[in-house]
Amino acid sequence: MKLGNILKNLVIFAKIERIPMQLESNPHLTIKNDVITFGEVLFLQQKDRAQHQFQLLMGEVALKTKMIDNFQKNMTHNVSIAKREGFEYKHIVFPCKPIVFRERFQSIGVELNPIFSDKHHHPQVLYPTILPEDYLLEDSHLNASGVLKVIEQVMKEFGYPELPKPIYGHADLVGDLRHMLGGDSLEEMQSLKGLSGLPKNRVQHFSTASGLEGNTGHLYFFFNPYALYNRRLVLFGDSFFQRRFDIFKRIFSEVVYFRNLRLTH
Rank of each mutant, 00 (worst) to 15 (best):
Y89G: 09
S80N: 05
I68E: 12
N113E: 12
Q106V: 02
T76V: 12
R102L: 00
S80H: 11
V93A: 06
P95M: 09
F105E: 00
I92R: 05
V93N: 10
P98F: 02
T76C: 09
N74R: 13
F87D: 02
I99Y: 01
F87G: 04
R104A: 06
E103N: 06
V93S: 13
I68G: 10
F94T: 02
S80F: 02
I108M: 06
V79R: 14
V100N: 04
V93F: 14
V79Q: 09
N74P: 11
F94I: 02
F101R: 00
K97C: 00
V93H: 10
K97V: 00
K83E: 10
I108P: 01
S107R: 12
F71D: 14
S107A: 13
E88H: 09
F94A: 03
C96Q: 13
M75I: 08
N78M: 13
N78A: 10
R84E: 14
L112S: 10
S80I: 11
K97G: 00
L112W: 03
Y89I: 15
D69C: 10
D69V: 10
V79I: 12
N78R: 13
V100E: 07
R84L: 14
Y89A: 01
H91W: 09
E103C: 06
I92V: 14
H77V: 04
K90L: 06
H91Y: 14
F105N: 00
V110D: 00
T76S: 15
Y89T: 08
R102I: 00
E85I: 03
S107L: 02
S107W: 06
L112A: 05
Q72E: 11
K83D: 10
P98W: 01
S80C: 11
I99D: 03
R102G: 00
N70R: 14
V100G: 06
R84D: 07
S107F: 01
N70Q: 11
I92G: 13
Y89L: 15
F87Y: 15
F94P: 02
V79P: 07
A82Q: 06
R102E: 01
V100H: 11
G109T: 07
F101P: 07
G109F: 12
